[in-house]
Computed example of a mutant assay.
Amino acid sequence: MIGNMKPLEILLIIAVIVLLFGAKKLPEMARSLGKSARILKSEAKAMKKDGESEDAAAAAAAATVADPVQPVAPRTIKAAPGDVTSSRPVTEPNRTAQG
């Protein structure tokens, strides 16, 4: 569909977008979209990394008999890579055997 458009039609569409949203809002909207994409990417990467580490931890626990009480460092979720102002600790439920 875009391949059939002529340059004049593309310029007309861009002009309508600028008129609708205003020239001041467009850079702000683009920045916000980029920031959201970075946050989504970092969260997806963190979830994948957590899944791999949980699988490795489960395999290691099954292979060897470990000390039942091991200190665990708290995990931290960051909103964006390098953004330390919005870092917050994550609380997880205790995984103890109850019977």
Rank of each mutant, 00 (worst) to 15 (best):
M1N: 13
M1K: 12
G3R: 14
N4M: 14
M5Y: 14
M5N: 09
K6N: 09
I10D: 05
I10P: 00
I13S: 02
I13L: 15
I14L: 15
V16Q: 11
V18R: 11
V18M: 12
V18N: 03
L19C: 08
L20S: 09
L20A: 06
L20Q: 02
F21P: 00
F21D: 02
G22W: 10
G22R: 10
G22I: 06
K25I: 05
K25S: 07
P27Y: 01
P27T: 05
P27V: 03
E28D: 08
M29K: 02
M29Q: 05
A30R: 14
L33W: 14
G34E: 01
K35C: 07
A37T: 08
R38Y: 04
K41T: 06
E43K: 13
E43D: 01
A44L: 15
K45R: 11
A46D: 00
A46Q: 01
M47G: 04
M47Q: 12
K48P: 00
K49A: 07
G51V: 02
G51A: 06
G51L: 07
E52V: 06
S53M: 15
A56D: 02
A56V: 04
A57T: 05
A59M: 04
A59S: 00
A60W: 07
A60H: 08
A60G: 04
A62C: 08
A63Y: 09
T64A: 15
T64L: 07
A66F: 10
D67I: 13
D67K: 14
V69R: 05
Q70V: 12
P71S: 06
P71G: 03
P71F: 15
P71I: 11
P71V: 13
P71D: 11
V72W: 05
P74Y: 06
P74C: 06
P74F: 11
R75Q: 13
T76H: 11
K78H: 14
K78N: 04
K78R: 15
P81G: 03
G82H: 06
D83T: 06
D83H: 09
V84K: 12
S86I: 04
S87M: 13
R88M: 10
P89M: 07
V90M: 09
V90S: 04
T91Q: 10
P93D: 05
N94K: 10
N94V: 10
